[in-house]
Design a binder for these strands. Structure first.
Lengths: 196, 196
DNA sequence: ATGTTATACGGAGGATGCCTCCGTTTATCA
DNA sequence: TGATAAACGGAGGCATCCTCCGTATAACAT
């Protein structure tokens, strides 16, 4: 999977593993409360750990984001697979986007993680990005093959556009309006239909 | 218009007016180069003015943004009026959105100003917000009356959605792809058509 | 001209956050 | 029970943000 064995050198230290876990929990809490721009020193403080330890485990803010929201990304990825197997192409795509948006609405901070994944700035944090791209790609290409949607639009572009749209609401305050955002996503999906 | 006379107290000081102008010029330059997050101290430095003076004239970053891009907002507002008078409803709306997007693409920093305007967080910087809302409102309600677009979508929602979409590209790097963004805006506009 | 005073100026300073670096501690392994 | 690789923690340098207030000066009155 992801953790290749590499070197059989030495067993990882117990405190290291524990601190990593503490940091992830603290980060989830802090990002939920304060948004994705929250202070990393606050995260370290909440975890009861030195700031240096935080940076050693997660060299960048983005790395921390990816780790915190990895589980959610996996869920979305799984959902894509199951929708692809059980719903008609356009319906599947729409439902998946709704789920994505809902997740972003629920967990403040998740949005940032998804945007990172959508930007596909490879190398770093590649994992989540790959999963999301693959998930979106599956649904889009299936819909395209079925002739349900226009073909001048890549999965990556679609994902990014939808997340941007969502971000316009959830980034700076103005919460709660999930219905509105849902409607706007629908507008976009309608616009993707084949007939132009 | 905007400058109501209020109190006939005293003539504004010459240095005050001059510094305000210097600050606006400097801000435009700095924001163009460094994006909307550029340091305000850098702006003050570029203007050859103390940081205190900057804050006195523009108490918040947003206030500075509004002032810097006020002219552009007015142009968009005028464009909306002229399109409303000269093009068929849907066409007018589409062209106006394209123009808005293009402006955001050209001037780094403009995007931030427009997003502020679209959020309509009243009271502060109300002026630009009003102009943009009015411009979008005119075009939307005309198209709606003509039966060209669905009616469960407000002008504000549309504007915000489109700017969010654009922001997904222009905020964090990935420049140049104006064609892509244009295409995505078209998708959204297509989705707004009446028939759902 | 010159004095008075409302206004504006400038930047020091306190606060916060980022990230690095390195002396100290500690878990693992022999 | 050492030896040592690995991890810890936080001080410190740097960059902002924004406020506050002593000083300077433009506008007005005489």
């Amino acid at each position: 999977m992801v953790q290749d064995a590499e070197k059989p050198s030495r067993k990882p230290r117990a405190d290291s593993i524990r601190n990593r876990e503490l940091l992830l929990e603290a980060a989830k809490a802090v990002f939920s409360a304060g948004g994705s721009g929250a202070s990393l020193e606050a995260v370290a403080r909440a975890a009861g750990v030195g700031i240096g330890t935080l940076y050693r485990h997660f060299p960048t803010r983005d790395a921390l984001f990816e780790a915190v929201y990895r589980r959610e990304v996996e869920q979305l990825s799984d959902l894509a697979a199951s929708l692809a197997a059980s719903a008609p192409p356009e319906e599947a795509l729409r439902r998946w986007l709704h789920a994505t948006v809902e997740l972003a609405a629920t967990k403040r901070g998740m949005l940032a993680a998804l945007e990172l994944a959508a930007e596909g700035r490879a190398e770093l944090y590649a994992y989540s990005s790959d999963r999301m791209q693959a998930a979106a790609g599956t649904l889009v290409s299936r819909a395209r093959t079925a002739g349900a949607i226009r073909d001048d639009l890549s999965a990556e572009e679609m994902l990014r556009a939808v997340l941007g749209l969502v971000g316009a609401w959830y980034r700076s305050g103005t919460p709660g309006l999930q219905d509105t955002v849902r409607r706007l996503v629908d507008v976009f999906v309608d616009g993707m239909r084949a007939g132009a």
